[in-house]
Every structure is written in structure tokens, then in C-alpha cells.
Design a protein around this nucleic acid. Structure first.
Lengths: 340, 340
DNA sequence: ATGGCTTATGCAAGCGCTTCCATGTAGGGT
DNA sequence: ACCCTACATGGAAGCGCTTGCATAAGCCAT
């Protein structure tokens, strides 16, 4: 291990100057800087993160707390975060918050307190009071992505707008009997998003003078399998002449498409299906969706937290989303109207 | 921030004793230990990782290098690793090695050299000589999971055995014209696995006296979309009376199932499909597969690296896998024999 | 010229732990 | 009783950086 002192000796300057030359803090003459950089390069010097952290109080690492890595949305956001942090020379410390309460507790108690990180990005987790308190006590830049949280700063796509866009797409195509697959109460306890989305859906319908049918609404766990299961119920029961279906995630929408296929329900001829997220599989299934660019969200969140770590203030950001019309949505075959 | 000294003062002992009591290294009387633990608890003391790392040379953190987080296999393994590390009180530093050569280079050059980690787990990445060299020069415990690498220690499921089990399942059901979806050359450059699997497939067939048809073999990128695409070709061409299909990943197998559905090919009536991995979606599709328990692999790899970090030697481990028969495989409807 | 600035550099004090070494104490074998 | 060993604890020296302060040197305006 080459130390800073060796570099200093080689370059013929003091260790303080080497530190300044390499970190860019303080004044160093161009000539000296070049000499230092050359010496460092030649010796293969790499700063010791522990020593640097201890002395400076900065670790050049960001903690990311994420739920279920299997979920495409989360691993997409994580990809975006990772990309941006790596480019900025920051490490990413991953805290995979599982449902195991003991592990979860441990993460909040010990891990975060270790001050290994300069900032924390929390992904779409619903935190209880104690957990939020721990986070606040860190006195570090924290940002919650996907779901406003108590009084922690958050960055969130407009979830109501997102689902509203999906619903309005179907409504403007002429659909009136529109089913909905969202999350349930238990699920909402862990993730923030579901409630917002359900409300956005209902409001969009009411704006069009349509009262959402309770019997056309189902709860699932945001996965393909979950969507498949409840979609089967929805398609199976002739409760109403449902011509459109909005799913609060693309995974559930894909599950619904699979269910439709299995039941012989024609999409979009009999039922139009719209999802939300922008899942990579959407293209394969021709799924109409509202893309919320999760990788971009990750990048944005990372940039934001880096900005705050480095002392730049950082205004609020609107996270963009857009309707992507593919082949699972079309006007209903015959005019069907929900109102009597 | 509560320091160790404060704990020492509160407990009425020296800082050396506090350090020993909390870390478990060295001798401390039970009475003293209790007093220290109590003081630490009461003050909410958490060790400063930077100071601890600097002084001890240990960081209680493991680096994980992984490719594409979207791939189910990788995020599953990552979940297993994360789980085990968290339980052991270790942090996980994630290096998402993308295809961007510059980022990739940077990860190997600067990040790893920073010595933020006590050990490294490399997930199924094919490394070039320089990268492997960098890894070796770290002089840290390293383990490559999924794909032997130069002379770095590796832990690998028996890939040939894995695919052989899948093939033999079809063969023993009576299939002889069996298609194969694997990876291509370009793909193999990044991931190690594909070549092994293809060979295992061919050998299994030859053991049954069947010569693999070249025209029944296709390359894809291990994703659902990729599997879908090539399966369509395979099902579309009447090249041979293919009655069985082995895919080198469950994702590709699922793609094949979707293709079959779209083309009206009956599974398993006309074609049996078998995958490899144990993908969570397998159940939904009724996919027969060889489950290699990726979460368990992650756990095992993490335990192994922790063992080496803590100085325990660690013998080789066999990673288990098992055939899971579901509904996409059955005996061929009429006896079809590939040999004349 | 002279004072006042800005810039360049070095000195040295930490940052908060871990651990070597020394010292002290208490059993245990003979 | 006595020596030896094992255990318990404290003192203090770092670990390898960063940074406040001091000094020196150059430059401009007066």
C-alpha cells in the first residue's frame, strides 16, 4: 500500500500539499499539482478511504435502502443510482430491507449509525415512526424516493397524475367500465405508492362522470403472478361489461395479459389493458403503459443527494412520465356506457 | 456523536477495555463487560467505522460486483448475499458493473483499490486479464460465483450437470428431437456460463445416442424477450419434428412458452419445455426447470467470504440443484425418434 | 518603497478507534 | 509458601489522512 507520504516524498512536497493537490481543496500551483499527480500515478497511489473518512468526516459513499430487489422497478432505480454514483466517484452501500423485522431493525439501529455514508436514499419504503426518527437523527442528507415520508425530504413522481394518465387514456378512447388492479392495505403498509394510485384512478373516472365500480377493483401484490390471479377473477366474473383495465404496475398488467390469454379474452378487442411503470417486458407484450423512467429516477435521486452532500442546495424536481401507447389498448368494440 | 471515550468514562474503565468488551477480542471480565455494554447502550454508542477501519485494517464490508441487476438470477443471488452479510453485521458495497467500459475500468482501478472492503464477491462476470490482475493485487479474499476465473477462487454450480439434468429429463421421457436455446459468442464474453451449458446439453444427448441438431440450436441473451424471439423461429420452422426444448435460463424458457402460446403450439402436448434456474415466475407458467437456488448460492458465497475474512479456511462447496417437474414437460405424444 | 492582499506551502494537531506492551492480580501445581 | 501461568486492565503509539494556522512569497496600488 502506497501512502500519501510516499507520494509527497517522491514529488518533493509536503503531505498537506499532496492532499490538496489530489482532492482539489485549497490552493496548489499548477506546476506542483502536475508533479504530485504524476508521482501518484507512477506509484499507483489510491487514497485510503478509512483514513480520509476519519480525518474529513466524509466517506464518499451513499447508502441506499431498498425493498425487494426482485421487483423490476426497484432494481431499475438502483441501476440508475449506481450508475450516477460510480461516475461521481462515490460508493454505494446497499441495505436490502427485507420483511424480517429483526434484520430491518438492525439496519436502522446499527448500520446507519455507523456513519459509513454521507447520505441516504430510501426507495419507496414506508417507515414507521421509530425508523424515520433514526433516519432524522443521522443528521445526514436523506431523500425518500417514491412516497413522501413524514417530514423527510422526498422526491416522488406524481403518482396520482401517473395513474390518471393511464385512466384518461382509456376514458378518452371511450371506455367507461374500467377495472382496476392496485395494492391492498397490508401491502400499503410497506410501500407507499398504492393508495395514491388508487385515488388517482378514482378521480380520473369521476372527472369523466364515471363512478368506479367497486366490484371491478382488485388488490394484488404488484407482481406478475399477483396480477394474473386477480385478473382471472376479474375476467371470469361477468360482473359488468368491463372493457378496460388499469393496473397500478406493469407487472400486474402483464399478469392480466397472461390471464386474458389463458381465458381466451381478446386484448384489446374485448378488453384494453394499461399498466404503469415502463417495464422492460412491456414491449414484448405490446403493453400500453405510463413510463415513469425508473432508471432516470435513480439518476436524479443520486444527483440530488450528491448535490446536498456537496453543499449545493437542490430545488425540487419534477419526475417526468409519459404515456406509451402500444397494442393492448384500443377503443371499445361497441359503445358501452356505464351510466344508465 | 458519542465516542468510545465517553463510554469508557461512563463505565469507569479505559478506552482499551471498552474496545475489547465491544469487539470481543481479548480478555474482559464478565462484570466489566456488562458495565461497558450497559454504558454503550445507554449512551447510544455506535462505533465509527472509519476510525475502526483505520486502526484495525478491517472494514466490515464486502464488495459485490454484479452485472445487470435486471436479471432475476443476479438480483436473487444479491438478495442472498445481502441477507447473510446483514446478519453478520457486514455492510455490502455494490459495484454494478455495466457494459460502459469506462465505468467498468474505473471500478477496477479506483474503487476496489480504496480498500473499503474486506473481501469481494464477483458475480458471473467474465473478467479480462487486467481486471483479474487488479483483483488479485488487492490481496483480499475474493470469490467468483458462477464461472471459474483464471486462478481466482470460484464457487460454481455444476453448469454442465445442471443442463444435463434438464436434458436427461426430456430424454428419459422419450424425447429425441430436442431444441436448445443458449447464449451466443458475444454474450459468452461477458458471462461465463453459456458455453458450459451448451456442452452439457450436447453431452447429455450423446450419452443417449442422440446427435444434437445444429438447426435446433439458437442463441439468445438469456432474457424473456430474447427467448421469445428465437423460440418463434424454432417453432415456426418445420426443420425437424422438435418435441422438446431446453433453454439455458428460465427467462428464455418463459419466452419460449409465450412464443408457443402465440403460435398456437401446445405445451407440453406438441413440445415440452424445460428451463434452468428456478425463476420465481416458473410456478405461474408451470415451467419444468432445474432449480439452482440462487438465493441460497448468494448466502453460501457470503458465508464463504466471511469465513475467509475471519481467517477460517473454507473448503469447497457443492452448490445444490434439483429438477422441478411441473406441467410444461411430458412424454412426446407419438413416439418420435431422431435416428433413422 | 511600503503596506495590504492573495496565493503557495509546510507544520502539526487531530479524527476515533485498535492493539502492543507493561503491569497487576489471582489461581494452581508441587 | 512459592513460582508460573493465565487473565484483566491501562497506557500510549499509531492507522493515513485532512485542515487550521503560520509563514513566505509575490503582486498591486499608493
Amino acid at each position: 500500500m502506497v501512502s500519501l507520504d510516499e507520494v509527497a516524498r517522491t514529488a518533493g512536497v509536503s503531505s498537506a500539499t499532496v492532499s490538496r493537490a489530489l482532492s482539489g481543496r485549497g490552493h496548489v500551483s499548477p506546476a506542483t499539482r502536475d508533479r504530485v499527480l504524476e508521482a501518484a500515478e507512477q506509484l499507483g497511489y489510491v487514497v485510503s478511504s478509512a483514513a480520509s473518512s476519519l480525518a474529513s468526516g466524509r466517506s464518499r459513499s451513499i447508502g441506499v435502502m431498498t425493498p425487494d430487489l426482485h421487483r423490476w422497478f426497484f432494481n431499475s432505480v438502483l441501476t440508475g443510482i449506481s450508475d450516477t454514483l460510480t461516475r461521481a466517484g462515490f460508493d454505494l452501500t446497499l441495505y436490502n430491507v427485507t420483511s424480517d423485522p429483526q434484520l430491518r431493525h438492525e439496519i436502522f439501529r446499527a448500520f446507519l449509525q455507523r456513519r459509513r455514508v454521507d447520505g441516504v436514499i430510501v426507495l419507496a419504503l414506508e417507515l414507521d415512526d421509530w425508523e424515520a426518527e433514526q433516519l432524522k437523527q443521522l443528521d445526514l442528507p436523506v431523500i425518500v424516493l417514491g412516497g413522501a415520508l413524514q417530514d423527510l425530504p422526498s422526491m416522488s413522481v406524481n403518482d396520482q397524475g401517473l395513474i390518471r394518465l393511464a385512466a384518461e387514456h382509456l376514458l378518452s378512447l371511450g371506455h367507461r367500465n374500467i377495472g382496476y388492479i392496485g395494492g391492498d392495505q397490508a401491502f400499503d403498509a410497506d410501500y407507499h405508492v398504492p393508495t395514491q394510485r388508487r385515488e388517482g384512478f378514482s378521480e380520473a373516472l369521476r372527472d369523466f362522470g364515471v363512478e368506479p365500480h367497486v366490484q371491478l377493483s382488485r388488490a394484488a401484490d404488484f407482481t406478475i403472478a399477483g396480477g394474473y390471479q386477480v385478473a382471472k377473477q376479474l375476467f371470469g366474473s361477468p360482473a359488468a361489461a368491463m372493457t378496460g383495465l388499469v393496473a397500478a404496475s406493469d407487472e400486474m398488467a402483464i399478469g392480466a395479459l397472461l390471464a386474458a390469454k389463458d381465458l381466451g379474452v381478446q386484448v384489446p378487442h374485448q378488453v384494453s389493458v394499461v399498466g404503469v411503470d415502463g417495464h422492460e417486458l412491456g414491449e414484448l407484450f405490446g403493453l400500453t403503459t405510463v413510463d415513469q423512467h425508473p432508471v432516470g429516477q435513480g439518476r436524479t435521486a443520486a444527483e440530488h443527494i450528491l448535490g446536498r452532500v456537496e453543499g449545493r442546495g437542490n430545488g425540487d424536481v419534477e419526475l417526468p412520465f409519459e404515456l406509451v401507447v402500444r397494442s393492448t389498448s384500443a377503443a371499445p368494440s361497441q359503445a358501452v356506457d356505464g351510466s344508465p
